[in-house]
Design a protein around this nucleic acid. Structure first.
Length: 737
DNA sequence: GCTCGTCTTTTTTTT
DNA sequence: AAAGACGAGC
C-alpha cells in the first residue's frame, strides 16, 4: 500500500494527473494542501521529476511555510530545491537577479503603503493636484488597480483621455513610476508587474525560468489577479504543466484585483484542461457544512458544486444576540473560559473572526480582564510602527543610497534641527543637478541657500557614511545595535518613561530578535535580504500553533485556517455585510460578502457560534443594526437560538436620537416564523400603495410588486426620481408611516 | 524650527 | 474613539 491509497478517488486523480493543465476545484476543507503535497511527492518519486523543476506558489508566507514543511516530510531528500513561495517573494527573487535588464539596481527597495502615500503626497504637491479632490489613497488605489490589470501609465492615459479627473490620475501615475525608478524602488504591485515586463522584454530570461519550472502549482487560485495570471501563464506556456487549485466560493479579494474570471475561465484559456472537483469535506460537522452550503447557495455567479461530509452531525450552530458589543465580547470571553474549563478544549482551539480590525479592541479588553491568553492578528502591522519604520529607514539608507524616502524620514530623527525649509532647499539642489537627495546632502556646503543649516547636515552625513563603511565587517544586527546606540533612540524613549514609550522599546527589542534570528536562519545573511523579508511579511505569517492562545483576526486573515471552535462576531447588517456593500448598486459586492461569510463558517470544525449586538459604537457614533441577513440564510432547524431567546428583554432604552433605526434593530428577528418559507427572503414589510423610502431616491409610492424566483421586483414611483423598478433585497425600501 | 492644541477624517477587507 | 493634519505661538 502506497501513500497515495489514503486519498479519495478525486484526490487521487488530481495527484496522478501530472501532465498538462489541471484545474482542481477544491471546496473548503476538502484536503487540497494534502493533494498538492502528495502531487509533488508523486512527481518526484514516481515520475522521476527533478525537484529543481517544481514550483509551488501560495499567497501568504504562512501557507508557503506550511506547505514547505509538509513537502519536506513527505518527500525527504531533494525537497529543499523545490521552489515553495509566494507570488511576491518569487518575483523578488527573480528580480534581484535580473532587474538590471529593466534599468534598476539589484538592491532595489520595496515600498510599503506608507512609503507610497508619502511619495504620492509629494507628487500631488508638485503636480498641483488638490488632495481634497483627489485623495492620495484614491489615486494610489487607482494606480494599484491599473497595475493589477497590467495597464501601464501610458495605456492608462490613452484609455482615459476624455475623463478629466482620470487624466490627472494618469499624470500622477506616470510621475509616481518615474519617482520609484529614481529611488530605485518598487511597490508591491510592481514586484509582479516588473517580473512580467522582464519576461516579455527578455526571452532568454523567460526561457531560463520556463526550463527551470516545468511543473507549476498555484494554491488559492481564485485570488489571483490579471498580473499574477500572466506571470504564471508565461512561465507555464512552454511545458503547460500548470496545476491550479482554488474555490470560486472562497474568492474574497476582488477589491485587491483578484479576477474571478481566472478560475471561471480557466478551461477556456487552457482548452485541454482537466477539471477535477473535490467535494468531500473532511473538516466540519454536517450542521456546520450544511449551514455554509445554504448561505452560499444564495449566490448566483458561481460554479455549482455540493460539498458533503461523512463527519457526524455535530451540535447546532449557536446564535446569540446581545444588547451591545460589550455584552457580546463578555459572552464570548465567558463562553471560551467555560469551554476550556469544562470541555475538552484549549485556548488555541478557539478563534474569533470579525469583519473589521476595529472590532478586536473590545475582545482584547475582555480577554485581559478574564485572563484569557490571546493573539491578535492584523491591525497595525508590526513593521508599520513608527519606531520600527524609523530604524528600518536607517538600514534602508545604508543599503540603498538612492532611497530618498528613507533618508528624508530619518534625517531629523533624532532631532538635528533640520526642518522643512532646509529639506526643500536640498531637494531643489538635488533636482537641479539631477542627483539623489542623499548625494545632495553630501554636498551640503556647496548649496549656497542653506547657510548655517549646512553645518547641521554634516554630522548626519558623516554618521551614515561611517555606517556604510561598517557593512563590510558588521552583521545587520550589529549595524542595528550601532544605530540604536549612536542615535540614542532607545535612550530617549527610556527618558520619556510613559507606557507608550515602554511599548515602543519592547517593539524595538522584538526587531532585534527578528534580525538575529534572520541571521541564524540564513547561510548568507545580508542587509538587503533582511529588509526584503521584512517588506514581504504579513501579519498572519507570524502565527504559529505553538502558543496556547485564542486567535483574534479578520475573516480575510482566517482564510486557509481551521479551528475546532469558531466565533463569528458582529453578525449585523451594516457591519457584515458592510454598509458599503448593502448600499452599493452592484449586487456582486454583496455576493463577495456572502463568500466571506462562507469562508468564515467553513473555518469551524466542530462548533460555530454567531453573535451580534443591537447597539454598537462605530467611529464614535452609536449604531443600531439588524442581525445580519446571512444569519437568516441559515435554515432555522440548524440553529440553536439560546434558551432565553423568547424572553429577550428590552432593557432601558437609550436616548432616542435615531429612534427609527433603533426600533428596527430591536424588533428584527433573525429568523422569520415557520409559516414563511425560509428560502423566499423575508417577505416584504410594505404593500402596493404604501409610501416607502429609498436610501438614494428618497420617498415614493409602491406601484407594483412582482414575485420573482428568489426575490421580489418592486416598482416604485419616487417623488423626485420618477418610477424605478428594483429588487426588494437590494433596494432596502423602508415603509414610511 | 519646534510644540502644542484644535480640527478633520476614517475604504472593511491586504500581499 | 482615535489618529493624523494643520496652524498658532514660542
Amino acid at each position: 500500500m502506497s501513500i497515495y491509497d489514503t486519498l479519495n478517488p478525486q484526490q487521487k486523480e488530481a495527484v496522478l494527473h501530472t501532465e498538462g493543465p489541471v484545474l482542481i476545484l477544491a471546496g473548503a476543507g476538502s484536503g487540497k494542501t494534502r493533494v498538492l503535497t502528495h502531487r509533488i511527492a508523486y512527481l518526484i518519486e514516481e515520475k522521476g521529476v527533478n525537484p529543481w523543476n517544481i514550483m509551488a506558489i501560495t499567497f501568504t508566507n504562512k501557507a508557503a511555510g506550511e506547505m514547505r514543511e509538509r513537502v519536506d516530510k513527505i518527500v525527504g531528500f531533494g525537497s529543499e530545491s523545490i521552489w515553495v513561495s509566494t507570488f511576491h517573494s518569487s518575483c523578488v527573487r527573480i528580480l534581484r537577479r535580473y532587474i538590471d535588464r529593466l534599468g534598476f539596481d539589484h538592491n532595489f527597495t520595496i515600498y510599503d503603503t506608507d512609503d507610497q502615500k508619502s511619495l504620492m503626497k509629494d507628487i500631488c504637491k508638485r503636480l498641483q493636484i488638490d488632495t481634497k479632490v483627489h485623495k492620495e489613497r484614491a489615486i494610489l488605489s487607482a494606480i494599484s488597480s491599473a497595475k493589477d490589470e497590467l495597464v501601464t501609465p501610458e495605456e492608462y492615459e490613452l484609455n482615459n483621455m476624455s475623463d478629466f479627473s482620470k487624466k490627472k490620475i494618469a499624470q500622477a501615475y506616470k510621475e509616481y513610476q518615474k519617482e520609484l525608478r529614481k529611488n530605485n524602488a518598487l511597490d508591491f504591485d510592481d514586484l509582479i508587474v516588473k517580473t512580467v515586463e522582464l519576461f516579455q522584454a527578455c526571452p532568454d530570461v523567460l526561457d531560463y525560468y520556463q526550463e527551470r519550472f516545468r511543473y507549476i502549482m498555484v494554491d488559492e487560485y481564485q485570488d489571483t489577479n490579471t498580473a499574477q495570471f500572466k506571470f504564471v501563464s508565461l512561465l507555464a506556456s512552454k511545458y503547460k504543466n500548470l496545476c491550479v487549485v482554488g474555490d470560486d466560493d472562497q474568492s474574497i479579494y476582488k477589491f485587491r484585483g483578484a479576477n474571478i474570471g481566472n478560475i471561471l475561465g480557466f478551461e477556456k484559456v487552457f482548452s485541454d484542461a482537466k477539471v477535477i472537483k473535490l467535494e468531500q469535506n473532511y473538516r466540519s460537522t454536517q450542521n456546520i457544512l450544511n449551514s455554509a452550503n445554504e448561505v452560499i447557495h444564495n449566490n448566483i455567479g458561481r460554479k455549482e458544486k455540493s460539498l458533503w461530509t461523512d463527519n457526524e452531525e455535530g451540535s447546532l450552530v449557536h446564535y446569540r444576540q446581545f444588547m451591545n458589543a460589550y455584552e457580546e465580547a463578555e459572552f464570548i470571553a465567558g463562553d471560551i473560559s467555560r469551554k476550556v474549563r469544562e470541555a475538552d478544549c484549549q485556548y488555541k482551539d478557539c478563534a474569533i473572526l470579525y469583519r473589521t480590525n476595529a472590532q478586536s479592541r473590545l475582545f482584547e479588553e475582555k480577554f485581559l480582564m478574564a485572563n484569557i491568553p490571546y493573539k491578535l492578528v492584523g491591525g497595525v502591522n508590526f513593521y508599520a510602527r513608527k519606531e520600527i519604520k524609523d530604524l528600518l529607514a536607517y538600514l534602508k539608507t545604508v543599503d540603498n543610497a538612492r532611497d530618498d524616502l528613507a533618508v528624508r524620514r530619518i534625517i531629523n530623527v533624532p532631532k538635528r534641527g533640520i526642518g522643512a525649509t532646509t529639506l526643500a532647499k536640498v531637494q531643489d539642489y538635488a533636482s537641479e543637478h539631477d542627483m539623489s537627495f542623499y548625494d545632495a546632502l553630501k554636498e551640503a556646503e556647496n548649496i549656497p541657500t542653506l547657510g548655517r543649516a549646512a553645518a547641521k547636515i554634516e554630522p548626519f552625513v558623516t554618521f551614515v557614511q561611517s555606517l556604510r563603511s561598517k557593512t563590510e565587517y558588521f552583521s545587520p544586527s550589529e549595524l542595528l545595535n550601532d544605530i540604536i546606540e549612536e542615535t540614542g533612540y532607545v535612550m530617549e524613549l527610556k527618558a520619556e518613561g510613559t507606557e507608550e514609550a515602554d511599548a515602543r522599546i519592547e517593539n524595538i527589542d522584538e526587531l532585534i530578535t527578528k534580525i538575529v534570528s534572520y541571521e541564524e536562519e540564513n547561510e548568507d545573511p545580508t542587509l538587503s535580504g533582511f529588509l526584503e523579508e521584512v517588506a514581504l511579511i504579513a501579519d498572519i505569517d507570524t502565527v504559529d500553533g505553538d502558543g496556547n492562545q485564542v486567535l483574534l483576526m479578520t475573516l480575510h486573515s482566517a482564510k486557509g485556517l481551521e479551528f475546532p471552535y469558531v466565533y463569528l462576531a458582529g453578525m449585523e447588517d451594516g457591519i457584515f455585510p458592510s454598509y458599503m456593500t448593502i448600499t452599493a448598486d452592484d449586487p456582486a459586492e454583496l455576493e463577495e460578502e456572502r463568500r466571506l461569510c462562507y469562508v468564515g463558517i467553513t473555518r469551524a470544525m466542530k462548533d460555530l457560534t454567531l453573535t451580534c449586538a443591537q447597539q454598537r459604537m462605530i467611529r464614535g457614533e452609536t449604531q443600531y443594526n439588524k442581525p445580519s441577513r446571512f444569519i437568516r440564510e441559515i435554515p432555522r432547524e440548524l440553529v440553536d437560538l439560546g434558551r432565553d431567546f423568547k424572553e429577550q428583554k428590552i432593557k432601558e432604552i437609550p436616548l432616542p436620537n435615531t429612534m427609527k433605526q433603533m426600533k428596527q434593530a430591536f424588533k428584527q428577528p433573525a429568523f422569520i416564523p415557520k409559516q414563511f418559507e425560509v428560502k423566499k427572503s423575508a417577505g416584504l414589510s410594505y404593500n402596493v400603495g404604501d409610501t416607502v423610502k429609498h436610501i438614494k431616491f428618497g420617498v415614493g409610492v409602491v406601484k407594483n410588486i412582482v414575485e420573482g424566483g428568489r426575490d421580489y421586483e418592486v416598482t416604485v414611483d419616487f417623488d423626485k426620481s420618477g418610477t424605478k423598478k428594483m429588487f426588494a433585497s437590494f433596494a432596502k425600501l423602508k415603509k414610511v408611516e
